[in-house]
Nucleic acid binder design. Structure first.
Lengths: 155, 155
DNA sequence: CCGATATTGTTATGATCATAACGATATCCG
DNA sequence: CGGATATCGTTATGATCATAACAATATCGG
């Protein structure tokens, strides 16, 4: 096994500075999200579903039929992005679309029977993934984390 | 102003279930990261830099020349992804590349003079963005958040 | 020394993401 | 009623992301 590679040039302190990338929230959040996402994909990946796709299905399961745009907001996706996700799910017959009879702008999205069955199968798996991601934390720490993350997202 | 659109079909409780998407860490982390990233892009966007690009430059500033692969690990990017980021930064003359004389597999990446100057200009802005993202939290809460996020990322 | 193994970087594929510009439809307001 | 304004969905562009397969190089073990 070759050395784990630290062969590059020696560290260079250019400017005296207390700056460290590790101290930037955005960087920490990105890595934590990578971990959570990878935990999820490890398990539901065999169903060929990504985290955003699963979130979309789960939201429809909770709320029933939604317009594409509102669905996007409820899973934190831009209109252009939720469109692509819906298209892929539709191609796999997990969701169905129809036009809103009273507002011609809207496309209503809903789970198909197959989509509903899949979500019900996936929810316990997702709960296990959440538990696995949170494993390093004690119960009270988890509650604190949820509170803090929620307040960050709200701004 | 049109109604804010809740026109879709009424909520449908399908299965009695305590499941809520809001209770899944992955979803919360994704939204918090969206917020932090958007805060950053709002400020450094005028420099035409994304958050990962900035992180790459910052890491090089901290550590000096690094192999492309190691650089990728230090900013949490896969080899295929760090490659693209380096290509874009190189095209803009913010980084320069050369081959490692002793290990022909390695490509050494380093900041150019222009890249170094840009990072030094951006660091205070990034610090302000971090502060802005953390604004909803008190000082002790921020410390707790850092601790929890760090432990999540480590697994 | 030399074959087995590991690492580096590349290529290809497919899925997110954000942004801006656009037409169509709906609502508001004078 | 009718123009100004807002919302919905689409298109286009460019940047992340993760994964798998691959050639080249380096290291290890016998």
């Amino acid at each position: 096994m070759p050395r784990t590679s630290t062969k590059a040039a020696a560290p260079v302190r250019r400017l005296a500075s207390d700056y460290r990338l590790e101290d930037q929230v955005g960087f920490l959040l990105r890595r934590a999200y990578q971990r959570a996402s990878s935990n999820l994909v490890d398990r539901i990946g065999s169903y060929d579903l990504t985290a955003p796709q699963y979130a979309t299905l789960a939201r429809l399961y909770e709320r029933g039929a939604l317009s594409q745009n509102l669905l996007g907001r409820l899973v934190a996706m831009e209109p252009a992005n939720i469109r692509d996700v819906v298209l892929r799910l539709k191609k796999r017959r997990l969701v169905a679309t129809r036009r809103d009879p009273t507002d011609k702008r809207l496309i209503l999205i809903d789970l198909t029977v197959a989509g509903t069955a899949l979500v019900e199968q996936l929810i316990p798996i997702e709960l296990a993934c959440t538990a696995r991601t949170l494993a390093p934390l004690k119960a009270d720490e988890r509650r604190v984390l949820y509170d803090l993350l929620g307040r960050l997202a709200e701004g």
